[in-house]
């Protein structure tokens, strides 16, 4: 439970890094802007966006984002 809260807090922090205009969602363009801040290629950021955008509506909700983050954490624990 405590870990869950910490995870959500982190996910929220990261969401805000991506959602610079505080729109409440992340667009493909927001994701590509991270190219300047993160050591990832535009192609990789596209892939991240597509992976997180599970409903394929072209924007990432905080829920989609935190779901992706918790999946990442789960995989980290397994490996």
């Amino acid at each position: 439970p405590e870990q869950q809260l910490a995870m959500l807090g982190k996910a929220h922090e990261f969401f805000q890094i991506c959602d610079v205009e505080s729109k409440g969602f992340i667009t493909r363009g927001d994701m590509q802007r991270l190219h300047n801040e993160l050591p990832l290629s535009l192609e990789e950021l596209e892939k991240v966006f597509d992976t997180l955008d599970t409903d394929g509506n072209g924007s990432l909700s905080p829920e989609e984002f935190s779901t992706g983050f918790s999946q990442f954490l789960a995989e980290q624990k397994v490996s």
């Binding site: 922090e13 990261f14 990832l40 990789e44 991240v48 992976t51 997180l52 983050f69 995989e75 980290q76």
Partner: peptide, 29 residues
């Protein structure tokens, strides 16, 4: 196999992305 290299799978690329965010956060107090 080119698909085996790190970051080629969606899981790998997602891990890359979140790891970068994590190190970005810890990198700046």
């Amino acid at each position: 196999d080119p698909n085996m290299k790190a970051g080629a799978t969606s899981e790998g690329v997602l891990a890359n992305f979140f790891n970068s965010l994590l190190s970005k956060k810890t990198g700046s107090p």
